[in-house]
Design a protein around this nucleic acid. Structure first.
Length: 222
DNA sequence: GTGGTCGGACGATCAATCAA
DNA sequence: TGATTGATCGTCCGACCACG
């Protein structure tokens, strides 16, 4: 896409090929690699990129990652929160004719129904963006201290993980869930809801959001 | 090293079409 | 009528360039 026009917001979550600690490669979801729980992220598996429904005009112009909050992190960072407004969307064309439909299953060599690989949440990768576990990611097993072998979900965007012990004992894992940020100060504070996944039952429990402070040098949004 | 630009891959959406 | 498919639109990754 190419949106013309000048703007002052461009440097943000630029991935970095030179990978210093804070500005190294970024995942598809916009999360810097160093934010991922150590070994749960395979270097070969690409998680699905998560997009916001409507980027603000500044992010749109700069072709940069926006977020749901208004003002978005990027506008706050560049000190123009008042300019952070949703970009307009053009209506779709109607009456576009189509040819015959092909069955997906008819395509040879393709899996019409790709089943979740592993883990109880994997099915949420579907393109319907409305749900629940879409951004969850396992952090660690408080019992064994290790990550279970089969974790899956794309991580929450821009949210660093926080290791905590689980109140549930064995077979319980601390999960990350979709988090919403607030921006009361330049240091930024992220509001984060926690979830626990019980490996034995497959159930997920949610816990009230907690606020975590992120020191400036570790801001994921750089 | 920092900041700006933008091509293009790919995710999200939704109307057209299909099948029960 | 609900499910499926494909077209379209939007987001933003990542490479490149300019500047101090």
């Amino acid at each position: 896409m190419s949106l013309s026009g000048t703007h002052s917001l461009a440097r943000d979550n630029q991935p970095n090929s030179t990978s210093s600690h804070n500005m190294q490669s970024v995942t598809d979801s916009g999360m810097p690699m160093h934010m991922f729980p150590l070994s749960t992220v395979s270097t070969t598996s690409r998680s699905k990129r998560k997009q916001v429904k409507n980027a603000c005009t500044n992010c749109q112009k700069a072709c940069k990652k926006c977020d749901e909050g208004r003002p978005c992190l990027r506008c706050v960072r560049y000190k123009c929160p008042d300019q952070c407004v949703d970009s307009p969307r053009t209506p779709r064309n109607k009456g576009v004719k189509r040819g015959k439909y092909r069955k997906r299953g008819d395509e040879k060599g393709k899996n019409a129904n790709v089943e979740p690989v592993d883990g109880p949440f994997d099915g949420s990768q579907s393109s319907s963006s409305t749900t629940h576990s879409y951004h969850q990611q396992l952090l660690f097993d408080p019992v064994s201290g290790s990550n279970p072998p089969t974790m899956i979900q794309s991580p929450p965007p821009l949210i660093p993980y926080v290791a905590q012990s689980s109140p549930h004992g064995q077979h319980t894992y601390l999960l990350h869930s979709t988090a919403i940020h607030q921006i009361p100060s330049p240091e930024m504070v992220y509001q984060q809801q926690q979830q626990l996944f019980d490996l034995a039952t497959g159930s997920v429990e949610s816990y009230p959001p907690t606020m975590i402070q992120i020191p400036s040098p570790q801001l994921p949004y750089i």
